[in-house]
Design a protein around this nucleic acid. Structure first.
Lengths: 157, 157
DNA sequence: GCTTATATCGTAAGGATTACTAATTATTCT
DNA sequence: AGAATAATTAGTAATCCTTACGATATAAGC
């Protein structure tokens, strides 16, 4: 099924309407799935096709998408919230690799934590509904370029 | 060795001085290790013993501690940065359990990710220097109290 | 078609963090 | 010890991101 149609149905299921503004925002997110866009970036991109759209609408729509578990609001330490499309099952977030040198943010779609979640349930009496796993480090290909220094810790990870 | 002494040496090693203000802040962090304090909370606590301390000094000191890898700045979604003491080796962060019902934040000190880090290195050519692993879910003991709803997704996780 | 609810727009208000200047404290050199 | 230099702090102003608000516009129900 078309992803926009799918999302439209999820809106309807919760008595929300997929207005033209909301649809434009959703399309921007789908078209830039790899990019972990910030509110401002979404705003800029969607304004090309929809010049009259207001910034507050972007904030509200992203909050709505978050509530519907279509996206996940995240903070990678650059001072702005970023939004990441969830997997189709809307269950778990994928993992991230964040390079200290080049700054690249790569996604790992596999879920590597099923075993650990079972362990958490067993040992801590805690049933996991979601997780977040980020790795910081350096790509081997970036290693030779040297490290920019140890300032990355200042970021809110 | 005394932890304050140890930290003092780390300051000296980087040509920073452990001033009375900085030491007071460090002591507050050590005394409230489990609590993931925010800047404002540190400020309030340290002012009891050190009424003339300024808020900006708290911000600067925590940034400094972050640079020295003594603490880790984190964002758990409540709009403020929180600071978490690193393990003694200053290498890796511990993991967190965050309950959707009671809001409790528990730490898991074991490092469960060594194998996954090896896998990342092998499959992605990425050598991990640090990680972040948070589990969201509910304690079995909280389950019977019911869930507050699905608004937790609005938080920046 | 009129009424009611929902969504948008633009901007004002809020809150957390950073930037900045003057004052204070420590260090170095003679 | 005393002057000069450097490091640190205090207090507040400025900045930036986000939320709140009132008015307008759009859609839904009868």
């Amino acid at each position: 099924m078309n992803r926009v149609t799918n999302i439209s149905q999820q809106f309807a299921a919760h008595n929300y309407k997929l207005t033209p503004q909301r649809e434009a925002i959703v399309r921007i997110l789908l078209d830039n799935e790899k990019d972990h866009l910030s509110v401002e970036e979404v705003y800029m991109l969607v304004k090309r096709k929809f010049p009259h759209l207001g910034l507050a609408t972007v904030y509200r729509t992203l909050e709505l998408l978050c509530e519907l578990h279509i996206v996940q609001k995240m903070n990678f330490g650059d001072g702005v919230a970023r939004y990441d499309l969830r997997d189709d099952d809307h269950m778990h977030m994928h993992h991230h690799l964040i390079c200290n040198v080049c700054g690249k943010l790569e996604e790992i779609k596999d879920d590597w934590l099923l075993e650990l979640e079972a362990r958490v349930a067993r040992e801590y009496g805690f049933s996991v509904t979601d997780h977040r796993l980020d790795f910081k480090g350096t790509y081997n290909s970036c290693q030779k370029n040297g490290c920019k220094g140890d300032k990355e810790c200042r970021a809110v990870s």
